[in-house]
Nucleic acid binder design. Structure first.
Length: 551
DNA sequence: CGGAGACGCGCG
DNA sequence: AAAGCGCGCGTCTCCG
């Protein structure tokens, strides 16, 4: 059932019963600019794509509902005060994004589709009203539009798949691990190289029985027996120990990780017909970053980028937002000297020059400022950073204090972080009785939430920018001339998105146009999200046959 | 036997 | 002194 809607979400005309949704959607897409309103596009849009139907825009009631719920609090709590995480005194981006809503859609096979459609229409109208009621309706409206567009991109990317050469992957595995081990009684044997290393580790530790390096507890005991006292078996801890078993263990861990996480079983489970098709979870991370389900799509080891190869006649445009998070902080905080350091080129270099240190120190100090660390040995650089860029420092400090006090903070477009848990409140609340000892964990929990909100304002605002950029890039790729007039699926396709990085798979002669589209999307996103700022958000782009050859 | 949690490590 | 932010997932281990 479809129903056309006006700009404010009120239905116009009569609801329409269509025999084939895909056909009806395609027909409406062909004649103009529709924005589809649906309960959730998660399954529905995948079906449309399988029928060869692509849509331009949507309003995903489920995803927008989550954004609104986070903003307004689960139990109808009052809206959070918006003072903390918003750039002060910035011009507001335009409000031209308010859509027309020609069609309503309901695809369920419920007993009473008309009633369900009515429920959806009123839920949507309610959401529009709540978006308008935001302290910054233009920015929050942009967020809801971008989140909905992100859902379309995610589904399209899963459908397209990341080009993946199983033969290259297999070759990498056998080179490092030995040939694929046969399965015995359903379980694959340990690969030759791992077996060899395990034996060498046992020898090096002087153990009487074979040590299983996969068991942290067993390994810890064997290390202690061999005279190595460590707090854990982590690589970082082992690396600081001088013992002949250590290099063997480090190699074992690295290879075992490759084997279990991205070995032959992974290959068989996730790569079909030359494509890796993970499922992306839009809004899966509280900060607005995407998560993924199955296949560990966002944790593909760099080593395996060698297996990501464009089809013959096609190429990969790999684009990465350089130093995104510190740039976002610069734009958020309205810190002029910092913004000027982020105006062009290498931000870390510019910051190093400003505080009179090395680039590496500047980078660590900046990350510490955003993560809530102390900078470790670079504590001095952090102090210099605070003195040189007081507004930027104050911005993250304010966010940290809000968290420590149990308040919530918002990203630049108004994504709200979760409130503290009941456990946190119980742990950190003062009892009022001066004799009562405070829980010793209370201070640690308070600081932990401070670090969370401190990081949230930056990470979530970076996610806002990246999502808007992605949505704009999608639109530009669809509107471009590349692939025009050629039958079949010859258009550039978004095939990967990982927080601040995108990959477009396109025909060789389209690469220049795609690179330009990426740059234009980044520039437009910066304006829409941050308005008039000195800060630039450069994308480094590489046109390569193989992902491993980018940067 | 399956679930839950710790551990460890890959990515940003 | 203790310690940085956000995830997914595989193995080991304990427990009911």
């Amino acid at each position: 059932m479809l129903h056309s809607l006006g700009d404010d979400g009120t239905p116009a005309g009569e609801a329409e019963i269509v025999p084939d949704v895909a056909v009806a959607v395609a027909a409406r897409e062909a004649v103009g600019d529709a924005r589809w309103v649906w309960r959730s596009g998660r399954l529905l849009y995948a079906r449309l794509l399988r029928s060869g139907v692509r849509v331009g825009r949507c309003h995903d009631v489920e995803l927008v509902g989550s954004l609104l719920q986070a903003r307004d609090g689960g139990a109808g709590a009052p809206a959070p005060d918006s003072g903390d995480a918003w750039p002060a005194g910035e011009p507001q981006p335009g409000t031209s994004e308010l859509p027309t809503l020609p069609f309503e859609m309901n695809e369920s096979r419920s007993a009473d589709p008309a009633a369900e459609l009515a429920t959806l229409i009123s839920a949507h109208a309610d959401q529009l009203a709540r978006i308008r009621a935001d302290t910054d309706p233009a920015r929050f409206g942009l967020l809801t539009a971008a989140e909905s567009a992100g859902a379309l991109v995610a589904t399209e990317m899963s459908a397209a798949g990341l080009p993946w050469r199983a033969d290259v992957h297999d070759h990498l595995l056998s080179g490092l691990l030995g040939p694929r081990p046969p399965a015995v009684a359903g379980l694959p044997l340990r690969p030759a190289r791992l077996t060899e290393l395990a034996a060498q580790i046992t020898d090096a530790l002087g153990a009487a029985r074979p040590v299983n390096p996969d068991s942290p507890a067993q390994l810890l005991r064997a290390l202690a027996a061999g005279g190595v006292r460590v707090s854990s078996t982590r690589s970082a801890v082992l690396r600081q120990v001088d013992h002949p078993a250590v290099p063997l263990l480090l190699e074992y861990k690295e290879l075992a990780r490759l084997y279990t996480a991205n070995g032959w079983s992974w290959l068989a489970a996730w790569v079909k017909d030359g494509r890796f098709r993970p499922e992306y979870v839009v809004g899966g991370v509280v900060s607005g970053r995407w998560a993924s389900r199955g296949g560990g799509a966002l944790q593909i080891p760099r080593l395996l980028r060698r297996a990501v190869v464009a089809d013959p006649g096609w190429t990969l445009v790999v684009a990465d937002a350089a130093q995104l998070e510190p740039r976002v902080l610069a734009a958020l905080a309205g810190d002029r000297p910092f913004a000027q350091a982020a105006a062009a080129g290498d931000l870390y270099e510019a910051v190093a020059a400003a505080i009179g240190g090395e680039r590496a120190q500047a980078k660590v100090a900046l990350l510490s400022a955003m993560y809530g660390g102390t900078g470790g040995d670079g504590g001095q650089s952090l102090a210099l950073l605070r003195r040189r860029f007081p507004q930027a420092a104050a911005f993250v400090e304010t966010a940290a204090r809000a968290g420590e006090e149990g308040r919530v903070v918002r990203s630049v477009l108004g994504r709200t972080c979760p409130p503290p848990s009941a456990g946190w409140l119980a742990l950190t609340s003062e009892s009022g009785d001066p004799d009562e000892e405070r829980d010793p964990g209370a201070a640690a929990a308070t600081r932990a939430r401070g670090r969370f909100t401190r990081n949230f304002v930056v990470q979530a605002s970076a996610a806002d920018w990246a999502l808007v950029m992605l949505a704009l890039l999608r639109t530009r790729l669809a509107a471009g001339t590349a692939g025009d007039g050629v039958p079949g699926s010859c258009r550039p396709e978004l095939v990967f998105f990982q927080h601040d990085e995108v990959i477009v798979h396109c025909q060789n002669d389209a690469a220049t146009e795609v690179v330009a589209a990426v740059q234009a999307a980044a520039t437009e996103a910066s304006w829409l999200v941050f308005g008039d700022t000195d800060v630039s958000f450069p994308m480094t782009t590489a046109v390569v046959d193989c992902y491993a050859d980018a940067k």
